[in-house]
Amino acid sequence: MNEHVTALDKLLFVGVVLLSVLGILLVGLLPRSKGEMVEVRVAGELYGTYPLSPQTLHIPVAYGEAVVQIGPDGAAITEAGCPDGQCMREGPISQSGQSLICLPGRLVITVTGKGGGADVTTY
């Protein structure tokens, strides 16, 4: 190991940053269309599919109960019960392919188009 910062160090840092930015741009540029349905997955299992119309869902998760509120602007997780609540700070989502993820509760909410969510898993 070298005592001083090397060219490879700089290359690694710049490389990771560039690849990350490229990845973020790619995800952002994915074709989106107005979603039709909301797909709810808990712990890897499909829990249910709901139309993207105003309603409130109560979903049992590892930490108790998560509440998903679907309003005119789309779906949002309003109650997660988990310690960090990261997923509650994002959304609402309404475009097909967008998703909200609660890691501790193992909950994934994905907006899908008419033909189901196959376009979500391709990247």
């Binding site: 712990a43 993820i101 193992r106 994934v108």
Partner: peptide
Amino acid sequence: LLGSGAVFA
């Protein structure tokens, strides 16, 4: 754990 490729985003 989540069974969804959405996490890769």
